[in-house]
Design a protein around this nucleic acid. Structure first.
Lengths: 243, 243
DNA sequence: CGATAGATTGATACTGCTCAATATGGGTGG
DNA sequence: CCACCCATATTGAGCAGTATCAATCTATCG
């Protein structure tokens, strides 16, 4: 709660402004949204699959993921999120959460009532278009993940996921991809790629041995983004980033 | 072209009307959209990954899929589509196709200029909301596919994919799930589930042996939807169908 | 200093892949 | 009506990539 309340929406605004140019009225309308600011530790649930939801969360700091579970408890992470991301925009139109949202690090986030956000979208076409565009990008990223998990081997799969994460961080202005400490554990990487923690560990180790990744203090870091991209055959088209 | 032009949009209208109730003005605005009607054989591309696109396709009859390819040519189908589905609504806001669209049977489809559809969405809030909702559902289905491909074994994976398809057909009024002939080949099922044709064949054979599936004349048919659902542990929440 | 979460390593098992051969069924031309 | 052809399905044998299970190790933190 200590963060200055005035710029609570700056992260999202910066993000959606990249999708559709907003004017001052648009920005003011967003800033005027009723909201509450929360902070949480790592591994906390913001939303649980099956819950009724009437508000949307916007990540301000830290990292989070969206995930689903199989009946027998296996977890699949379907996306990672970075500051500025809207975590569950779909609550705008759906009452029931079809997946869970969990932090993966300490995080702070904004909670905005869905109906208010919907009202602003109705009044401000630019905002509506930016949000819709964001929804399309989300869908495009999920498609790429289906491909990733379905058709790439462990090595390329992990490389691709890390590339995507690093590049999105860069695009969002969170820093250089080769400096950034990757916030996820081997287990989370496994759950995101459909592999086991053990196999992720071995694959990561081989990438470190090849100098593509490096051990940072707490986590892994990307040593050579270029080589990682080549291993993943990463093509950023699907991110539909204007930049 | 022989189909009566008057009800060219009936399929989509029925579909999006289930998402948001439309009034007569909404319907008329959609019906007044400029459009062209095309027909194609099986396995034809309507859109290719990387192409510039300025219109949207709406499937009127037959079946289609969306797919992406890995650099080394491996194909991943990311969704199947049935009559009434809008195949590439995202062209409304993005110029570049991030995936391909291919028919899997003979098909007829409508092509509508993206800018006109966008105009109608701007003028008719109900239409816009219905389309946005459709986008959210799409994204939700992709998430389920990531889970499917990432965390279920071959048997449950195939069962889940078939359940989804049959249930969507039922919801769209295309007939009973246990009567419907499944239009896809073993190879396509494999490409949708991240498996090989050979393994799909063996798995399908075992499901037929258990009387869960049955050989129809041209294709496989679902013999016992209930048992197939149990094998898949299918839960339709993620389809966000009003019904 | 002990507790704890996560990383690491080894040994072994298994699911699903690959390659290759053969079968089948519906469509075609004569 | 037949012979042939194609796409797809089917079957077999052997292999590979990942999973599993089970220790052990290592940081970090109160």
């Amino acid at each position: 709660m200590s963060v200055s309340e005035n710029d609570a929406f700056d992260g999202v605004l910066r993000k959606i402004d990249r999708l559709v140019a907003l004017d001052d009225c648009d920005r003011d309308a967003v800033r005027a949204l009723p909201h509450a600011l929360f902070s949480s530790g790592a591994d906390e649930y913001l939303v649980r699959e099956g819950q009724r939801e009437t508000s949307c969360c916007i990540l301000r700091s830290g990292f989070a993921c969206r995930q689903k579970r199989t009946d027998n408890g296996a977890r699949q992470i379907v996306s990672f999120h970075i500051p500025g991301d809207i975590l569950d925009l779909q609550n705008l139109l759906f009452a029931l959460a079809d997946h869970s949202i969990q932090t993966i690090t300490d995080a702070t986030y904004l909670v905005v009532p869905a109906e208010d956000l919907k009202r602003v979208a109705n009044l401000r076409p630019n905002v509506a278009e930016a949000l819709w565009r964001d929804t399309f990008i989300d869908a495009s990223v999920f498609r790429e993940w289906v491909l990733n998990v379905g058709r790439r081997d462990a090595r390329a799969r992990i490389a691709h996921m890390l590339c995507e994460f690093a590049i999105r961080c860069e695009q969002a202005g969170l820093g250089d991809a080769e400096t950034l400490a990757l916030p996820m554990t081997a287990e989370q990487i496994g759950d995101a790629t459909g592999l086991t923690r053990v196999h992720v560990n071995r694959t990561l180790a081989s990438l470190v041995a090849e100098d593509v990744l490096a051990y940072g203090q707490p986590a892994v870091r990307i040593a050579r983004l270029g080589r990682l991209r080549r291993i993943a055959r990463f093509d950023a088209t699907y991110l539909h980033a204007a930049a």
